[in-house]
């Protein structure tokens, strides 16, 4: 099952159409000849600077947007097929950037129940799913609260619980931590990791935080609607110069190792976090 592809982009192009001042349709291709396979169970991070098309990719994944040309298939169903749209959305759930704009109910547990209610799940089953989903993200004791009294990280966890309760196979997250403080980011990242490792849910994380991408199984770097780098985090972040040319940062530890190596210090080029970096420096010093 590991190799089964759950989301497949096949030479997809997409442009937002806007009516320009002279009433002509102005279209700029946001996604251009994009192909990508996401295998089931993978934790994929999509990186790229603003306007590179990464949010558009997210919206193409469950049919909020449909490609102008090419094809997006979810579990074998084309997102352009209107009749399959409900099935696609019960396979691929989505968490957005702004937690305030995706919570629909005035009470936490009612919001988590919203998805399964729409799918026509029987009431007792919804109750079970809601309790289970809230436990999973550590928000069970907040079930009777009003969402507007929660912190950003807590709201985002409620949104994640809402997706869990729908029993989706895959979750797409469009910069879920962008509006959160460091503490909230940590909470959400823990929930995402739990989702992927304990429940085997495929996660597509769109982000511009390098330290979040490092934790993924695979990193895809986008620029101008195309994939420029694709591979394990260790392989991708080796390309320090290329990433910088794209206007992206690398993790701080990688940056340090890169600068040390550049100034002639013998250190490996596949360092991702502080600990690896420290022990590599230590080793290099001992050799000297």
């Amino acid at each position: 099952m590991k190799d089964k592809v759950i989301i497949k982009f096949d030479n997809v192009s997409f442009a937002y159409k806007a009516i320009a001042d002279d009433d002509e349709m102005a279209a700029t291709a946001v996604v251009d000849g994009f192909s990508l396979d996401v295998p089931e169970g993978q934790f994929l991070a999509v990186l790229g600077h603003n306007g590179c098309g990464k949010s558009t990719i997210a919206k193409l994944m469950n049919g909020i947007l449909v490609p102008d040309s090419g094809k997006v298939t979810v579990d074998g169903m084309s997102t352009s097929d209107d009749e399959k749209i409900i099935d696609i959305r019960r396979t691929v759930g989505m968490v957005f950037q702004n937690p305030d704009n995706q919570i629909v109910a005035t009470i936490v547990e009612d919001d988590v129940a919203f998805g399964p209610e729409n799918l026509g799940v029987p009431p007792e089953e919804i109750r079970k799913r809601v309790d289970d989903a809230l436990e999973a993200v550590g928000m069970y004791e907040f079930r009777g609260r009003e969402p507007h009294r929660l912190s950003g990280g807590q709201k985002q966890r409620v949104a994640i619980a809402g997706v869990i309760a729908m029993n989706t196979k895959c979750v797409v997250m469009d910069e879920p931590t962008a509006m959160l403080d460091p503490h909230g980011r940590q909470e959400v990242m823990d929930a995402i990791r739990m989702l992927n490792k304990e429940r085997g849910i495929t996660v597509v994380l769109i982000t511009h935080y390098m330290d979040e991408a490092v934790k993924a199984d695979r990193v895809v770097v986008m620029d101008k609607g195309k994939i420029v780098l694709d591979g394990e985090p260790r392989m991708v972040f080796k390309n320090v110069e290329k990433l910088k040319a794209l206007g992206l940062d690398v993790p701080q530890a990688t940056e340090l190792a890169y600068r040390l190596r550049k100034s002639g210090f013998p250190i490996a080029d596949d360092i991702l976090d502080e600990e690896e970096c420290a022990s590599a420096i230590l080793r290099a010093l001992e050799v000297k």
Partner: peptide, 19 residues
């Protein structure tokens, strides 16, 4: 944005039930 989020959670889907 809310409309997108509600679409994603299958609002208007097959027969809504209530918890």
């Amino acid at each position: 944005e809310l409309a997108d989020a509600m679409d994603c959670r299958c609002y208007g889907g097959p027969g809504r039930t209530r918890m």
